[in-house]
Design a protein around this nucleic acid. Sequence first.
DNA 1: TTGTAAGCGTTATCAC
DNA 2: GTGATAACGCTTACAA
Lengths: 330, 330
Amino acid sequence: MATIIDVARLAGVSKTTVSRVINNYPHISADKKKQVLNAMEELGFTPNLSARRLRGQVATTIAVVVPKIVNPFFSYLVDAIEQVGYKNGYQTLICQTNEDKEKELAYLNLLKTKQADGIIMTSIENDWETIKPYIEYGPIVLCNEYVSRVDVPMIRVDQYQGTYVGVKHLIEQGHRKIAYCTGGLFTEFGKDKDRNHGYQRALEEAGIAVNPNWILVDKHTIEDGKLVMRQLLEMKDRPTAVFTGSDEIASGLMMAAKQAGLSVPGDLAILGFDDQPIAEVLEPALSTIRQPIEQMGRKAGEILLAMLEQADLEPAVYELPVELIVRKST
Amino acid sequence: MATIIDVARLAGVSKTTVSRVINNYPHISADKKKQVLNAMEELGFTPNLSARRLRGQVATTIAVVVPKIVNPFFSYLVDAIEQVGYKNGYQTLICQTNEDKEKELAYLNLLKTKQADGIIMTSIENDWETIKPYIEYGPIVLCNEYVSRVDVPMIRVDQYQGTYVGVKHLIEQGHRKIAYCTGGLFTEFGKDKDRNHGYQRALEEAGIAVNPNWILVDKHTIEDGKLVMRQLLEMKDRPTAVFTGSDEIASGLMMAAKQAGLSVPGDLAILGFDDQPIAEVLEPALSTIRQPIEQMGRKAGEILLAMLEQADLEPAVYELPVELIVRKST
DNA sequence: TTGTAAGCGTTATCAC
DNA sequence: GTGATAACGCTTACAA
């Protein structure tokens, strides 16, 4: 590989001058600049980023932490972020935790070792107290996931509202026995908390009590959805509608329901979350809560880049709207 | 950030010794080693990778070039590669070209600048002659995509066989009017070529002539699929079956077909390609050609890592089997 | 077994 | 406007 010295030699200037050309220094004579440019061209020179990183503070890489890239929600998010990054000359490092705490920490260390200049986290495995110290090493932006303390910028959708509106919609369709099937847990943290509250609040307003048997947690995949349906079928007292935490669980539910001879939404109404491509191709087409994925990704990317340019950006919470999409499954 | 020098100072040894501990040098006294380890722990030391890269030849990053990460085929491929990488201490850099030649070249430059130690390409935008010179800078493995000259290892499935078997299956179901709808082009290069040949060969064997009106190229998304269906509907002489290049196109086709009141497979048989999750949830469930995505990714990762360890690995072609999955749409 | 010192390719500081 | 030179943090001869 050609280095700055080779270029300098060929152009008959010092390496300082070459460096100045690379970095668009203002005061360089036109002819020397041209000589350098020619030499760079001739040698096929590309600056060594490790060296630049080691030396100065070039920021060129952002890392995106996702739990599972095969989940369309996250692949679309990554897509949006990557586009913003690329447009601004940044590379995107994709970090898949597979919901592993260790792996998440390993990826956070990218910040420490300056392999990544900033990180966008779309999921959180460790406690916030464990993660927080890393902001010392570079900007962290939370996108999709969030925590109660505003130490870092957070891009979120109003999960409470989304769930509330969804469950309310089911109630308006005449349902009183509404199951709740979520990818998270039924806990008081972050995203889960808000969704839970939305569910509870909607029921409460309609004077309906929560039935703990109908709370199904930690469900993620199509396969999980099928399993859940089997569980529901075995119940003596069966819900007539299910609010799900993702279109994928909803898909599994719908498949298993149809297979069991249930009509959707006649015997069982199913509501998804996300509005992924799959929602539209299902039969009946899936009603769902649309998350503005692309907007979220773009916003997260833009904010991280802004923080990289001016380190003192005040962390804020950016809330994006969700939307109820009524199709045929409810 | 703590450096090797800080650790050395705290441990009361030279930085060489620290370096040796980091790199598991054999001959170090147990107590000095312990001192160093303690010091590293206390300071929360993490080696600076830019420095290591600049100095020696540590390989820690592989890049995966994909056209579109939101395409499940590629997100599953990336997933498999990432897992292999992580298990062996490598990071995975995801490079999305969006089918842009410039962007592909920009990503190939990662090799040149040693930001990536090796690259797995799952798609190719530029001519092979343009890409080939980059192998000078580091190993390149082709996975899914392939070219006729074996300059680099290639992991591929027998696209010819897949297409041939699929089309033959349609013929066996009694179809004689079979459309061909592909993501690529109807050309004589790489993957496209083999698929085309498979289609032509199967027809030929059954004594059926190719109808150019039924060759639809450059179709990728669900939306494309819908559009294609509209095209088909306008034809006086309509095919009774469609071989598609991906489950996504097939989904779009199926949606539009049902909307137009056509029964699948009664009025129109539809065959997908890939066997993505979506294939199973469609109604009727989609018959398709299954690609061993996970295997492909794993193999590609393993081979790249092997090349990184021993540079002189002879490039070979690894062919993986495809499988016809008959469901309800054919 | 351990330490000293040179150097990887770049940029910032200072001098001219 | 241009050029020496010293860092950045690490590894690796070479010496001890």
